[in-house]
Design a protein around this nucleic acid. Structure first.
Lengths: 204, 204
DNA sequence: GTCTATATTTGGATAGAC
DNA sequence: GTCTATCCAAATATAGAC
């Protein structure tokens, strides 16, 4: 037994509790109970205590969702179609799960942005990673750098906000509306990029 | 002294602490200290304790922001312009405040959506109020009911998410990107509504 | 009704046996 | 290195004096 290492079980348990309850409401004892580990284990594996474990959980979730972003967007040549499909997929997942929070990063980020500098910084790095990854994909499909960046920033913000609204209202409508809006933005930007290209290719 | 009634001072103090720390991290003692009231006052004025005070704070904030939404959007005949201006205004406010959270509703909603049914319901009512108010304005400017609703839903979600990203990254970029995206969505919807009207007026 | 003192539980963290 | 027992501070809530 204990096929999975203790420190990893602790991080997984923390991740799970963070997305349901957030950082402040999650107790170290809850975490070790869920992980099936004694209290002392926390401080053996994570000398920084609760904050240290939460930091590891944020980074872990960040990496996992970074991969998901790539997998969801990559199959679509059309940027707007990819974004719309991603929002639809997210709305189905959250509804099927009974409106469970998908990812702790947004929730925890909102909670600790004014009070926990270290966790705020880590959340910022995680989000930056998503934005870099997504905007690279958009650049590869022809968007200028600044537009690609703005688009992915808007997509992440819209998704995080829509998750909160969806969980609060028990409705997929906010996510679907967000997807439509981001599709409109993507189409506006791709059209502008196409115009710029044809202008350059065949100027007046 | 004590010109303001005790129960109101308590609610104001709770509101302030909620937007900085969220619900779980905010203690009743912190609230009464900030309000200059003894502990007993809480349970005299709010028999439901901490949850009851937070509920009052959420409703109060909801009403205040509902008024703000109307004030920000009303001066603009063009829907997209009004939305873009509102996002720009929000980005300036949050930067000037030193990235302070503007409103507790989004933060608390994300935190308690899976754990505090009563507060979740109240947050849902507050958000519903905003969406109803905003979409009524959009309908008055010519958008069909469903589009007006989807637009305001997307705007609120985008704004809430952008606030989290802005506070986390210490940057107005997410809010400005969100504003551009919502402007694009609004223009798409207004153009579609205009086409429908001209089709009806002069059918093929 | 205002406020103080306190009951009770739980929080994070540590010491030290094994 | 794993785990138990415990520390101390802080949490919410209550009882009851004034």
């Amino acid at each position: 037994m204990a096929r999975v290492k203790t420190d990893e079980r602790i991080v997984v348990a923390m991740t799970e509790l963070l997305r349901r309850q957030g950082y402040a409401a999650t107790g170290i004892k809850q975490v070790v109970d869920a992980a099936g580990a004694p209290i002392g284990s926390i401080y053996h594996h994570f000398s920084g205590g609760k904050r240290d474990v939460a930091a590891a959980a944020l980074r872990r979730s960040g990496a996992a969702y970074g991969e998901l972003v790539g997998m969801l967007l990559a199959p679509y040549d059309d940027i707007a179609e990819g974004i719309e499909a991603a929002f639809v997929s997210a709305s189905e997942t959250i509804a099927d799960s009974g409106w469970l929070n998908m990812c702790p990063v947004g929730t925890v980020a909102g909670e600790v942005a004014d009070t926990e500098p270290e966790l705020r910084t880590i959340a910022a790095e995680v989000i930056d990673g998503w934005v870099e990854q997504g905007s690279a994909l958009y650049r590869a499909r022809g968007l200028p750098d600044a537009d690609a960046h703005a688009l992915m920033l808007a997509v992440v913000a819209s998704l995080e906000g829509a998750f909160i609204l969806a969980r609060t209202q028990r409705s997929t409508a906010p996510i679907l509306a967000g997807g439509r809006a981001m599709g409109a933005f993507a189409r506006q930007l791709t059209a502008a990029a196409a115009n710029t290209r044809s202008d350059t290719a065949a100027p007046a």
